[in-house]
């Protein structure tokens, strides 16, 4: 095995595209909000910035490829899913803490629920990738 296992072939390319869109969306949105009106909703804007960082790292691991990157991506996607679920539930349970929306508000409703669907799809793809890899080694 000389070349790194590719994570962006087949359906992976669509995942990279969607994660890339989320990186641009979350990072530019939080950068603008933090620089202009941070005091209005510091918690919401910080969470959006955190989401942007996580999306950025996952995009990087997918493009890089290889087993270590795949494992790192699995961990981050799980953290991302947890983040969407916790922040989503938090925004519904205590709207007062969020004067303005985050990327993960209401489970990502403002982004067509892509934030909650994406990590599930990505985890499926990454775990399946490992299974296929093991079969290839055994064969």
């Amino acid at each position: 095995m000389t070349s790194r296992q590719k994570l962006i072939s087949g359906p992976g390319i669509l995942l990279v595209w969607l994660y890339g869109v989320m990186v641009v969306g979350a990072v530019s949105r939080s950068a603008y909000q933090i620089s202009t009106e941070f005091d209005r909703a510091p918690l919401a804007y910080s969470l959006s910035a955190l989401a942007g960082l996580v999306y950025g790292f996952i995009t990087y691991t997918l493009v890089r490829g290889g087993e270590r990157a795949r494992r790192a991506a699995v961990v981050c996607c799980a953290a991302e899913l947890l983040g969407v679920l916790v922040v989503g539930a938090w925004t519904l349970a205590d709207p007062g803490a969020f004067p303005d929306a985050t990327v993960w508000s209401d489970f990502g409703m403002g982004y067509l629920f892509i934030p909650v669907l994406l990590p599930v799809t990505a985890l499926y793809w990454l775990v399946r990738g490992r299974a296929a890899d093991r079969q290839a080694v055994a064969a």
Binding site: S9, G10, G12, I13, L14, W17, L18, L112
Partner: peptide, 27 residues
């Protein structure tokens, strides 16, 4: 950007990426 990605992935998934790109542009 979606178009270049479909050049790198010459399968149906490249086409689907451009479809997603068109949808994102509409949004």
């Amino acid at each position: 950007v979606a178009g270049f990605m479909s050049l790198a992935e010459r399968t149906r998934w490249g086409s689907l990426t451009v479809a997603a790109g068109g949808f994102v542009l509409a949004v």
